[in-house]
């Protein structure tokens, strides 16, 4: 089942957030606070929550910095759904220039200042997928992390792979 389908599927005890975020870096702390709030009752391990919060913030940072170039008048959609099984995230924004095939892999042996955001997202989340719709210049980023029963009392499965 795709992430888009999972997001449409009603789940018991799930929390859903549908937000419109301004293209300013000031929005990032707000997003982090909202994630804290909407995950509170899921009783996730603090480290799992920190990881997911980081992945979502990295995704938002990339939009604000690269697609919007810190233009506060621009907006992107952020949808988050947290249940006992999945953490699902969707960002939707306009960017005519973005080509997901050109995202570079960082050289961890010769690090530069930038380029770690998508790398971090891919290592924290189980699935990270981009879709572009050239006619509308819309980019959709979907991410999914499976919540295992251990995530309430153990470590996440995907950390530190690769």
């Amino acid at each position: 089942m795709s992430i888009a389908q999972l997001m449409q599927e009603p789940r018991p005890r799930s929390t859903r957030l549908d937000l419109e975020i301004a293209g300013t870096s000031r929005s990032l702390s707000l997003v982090r606070r909202l994630l804290d709030t909407c995950t509170r009752h899921q009783r996730l391990q603090p480290q799992v929550l920190n990881d997911v919060k980081l992945a979502v913030a990295e995704a938002c940072t990339n939009v604000i910095r690269h697609a919007f170039q810190f233009d506060p008048t621009r907006r992107f959609g952020l949808n988050i759904q947290v249940s006992d099984r999945y953490f699902l995230v969707q960002l939707q924004y306009e960017d005519a220039r973005f080509d997901p095939g050109t995202i570079p892999q960082p050289d961890l042996n010769n690090l530069r200042e930038g380029g770690l955001g998508v790398y971090i997202m891919r290592h924290i989340m189980d699935v990270v997928e981009y879709a572009t719709d050239p006619p509308t210049r819309t980019v959709t980023l979907r991410m999914m992390k499976r919540i295992s029963p251990d995530d309430a009392g153990g470590q996440s499965e995907n950390r530190y792979q690769g």
Partner: peptide, 13 residues
């Protein structure tokens, strides 16, 4: 209490 890739990038710089 929180550090992201921008913060890491600054430390690398």
């Amino acid at each position: 209490g929180y550090l992201d890739s921008s913060g890491l990038g600054m430390l690398v710089y």
